[in-house]
Computed example of a mutant assay.
Amino acid sequence: MNKRDAIETKARILSAAEDIFSKVGFDGARVDDIAKEAGVNKALIYYYFKSKNEILETLFSSLIEDARRMLVKSMEGTPDVSGNDGYRKLFDIYIRFVSQKRKIIKVAVAESAKTNVSSSIIMELGNLIINAEIDALRKEYEKKGLHFPEDKQELLVMEFFTGLTPFLSYALYKDQWEDQYGMSEEVLQNYFYQAFKKAHLEAHLRW
């Protein structure tokens, strides 16, 4: 197998695993099912990955790296995030990201909710996004000569529970909500943005 075929095969295995993990959960997934979904034999999966855990770790690592790239692009494309227009652009970038990554986000949330988890992928993802947003906001406040809040603990709590968590909920329930209420993706996103503005953006604007 040449290098290109190997890369494509590995990507197909990861895609199949992500699909199955999101449907039945990590614990309920079987390597045999992943092999069947990917159209490869089981031995080939173990050639690329030592275990099912390594497959999950690879998917989570990719999620973090994709989030990192998304944040770099978002901050380059929306230099002013302290106003309504800038925040709408940032919101749209985030909503596209969680929509595209909703399968692995479902798995990440489920795994992070386990009581015996020593390192939570959701906390790692949250730390990455929250710190990027806080740094961007601080720069905008400084440029405008405004005072930026010094209580970092308050900022972290607000960003996680009113900033990040709603997007995770959107990723978890987007498809179910559209089916349950016959709502289009565009309409749902617009209503979500209005609610997000009132809950999260208003808190920023009051500083």
Rank of each mutant, 00 (worst) to 15 (best):
113 A>K: 07
68 R>G: 06
15 S>D: 10
82 S>F: 07
199 A>N: 10
178 E>L: 14
178 E>D: 06
17 A>P: 01
11 A>L: 11
132 A>H: 02
101 K>N: 06
191 Y>Q: 13
14 L>Q: 05
170 Y>L: 11
120 S>K: 12
1 M>R: 04
12 R>Q: 09
10 K>V: 04
124 E>I: 08
174 K>F: 07
21 F>D: 01
52 K>H: 05
195 A>H: 05
127 N>Q: 10
152 K>Y: 13
168 L>V: 03
165 T>D: 04
194 Q>M: 15
139 K>I: 06
153 Q>E: 12
156 L>P: 01
43 A>D: 05
34 I>A: 12
8 E>Y: 03
73 K>A: 15
83 G>L: 05
1 M>V: 07
185 E>A: 15
111 E>V: 05
145 G>Q: 10
26 F>M: 05
84 N>A: 15
192 F>E: 00
71 L>C: 13
119 S>K: 15
195 A>I: 04
19 D>H: 12
22 S>Y: 01
43 A>K: 07
133 E>I: 04
27 D>W: 02
199 A>V: 11
81 V>Y: 05
64 I>R: 06
154 E>L: 14
187 V>F: 14
113 A>W: 01
32 D>P: 00
162 T>H: 07
174 K>Y: 05
51 S>D: 03
21 F>N: 01
161 F>K: 08
87 Y>D: 08
107 V>L: 06
156 L>M: 13
145 G>V: 09
140 E>H: 09
203 A>N: 02
144 K>Q: 12
154 E>W: 07
192 F>D: 00
147 H>E: 09
8 E>H: 07
113 A>H: 03
155 L>E: 00
37 E>K: 15
132 A>G: 02
136 A>E: 00
46 Y>K: 09
126 G>D: 02
18 E>N: 09
37 E>Y: 06
156 L>Q: 09
179 D>K: 11
62 S>M: 11
13 I>P: 01
132 A>V: 02
179 D>S: 11
29 A>S: 13
161 F>H: 12
168 L>C: 05
128 L>H: 03
153 Q>P: 07
7 I>L: 11
19 D>S: 14
164 L>Q: 01
157 V>C: 11
93 I>Y: 08
103 K>T: 00
120 S>M: 09
167 F>R: 04
85 D>N: 13
48 Y>E: 04
158 M>H: 09
61 S>F: 08
33 D>K: 15
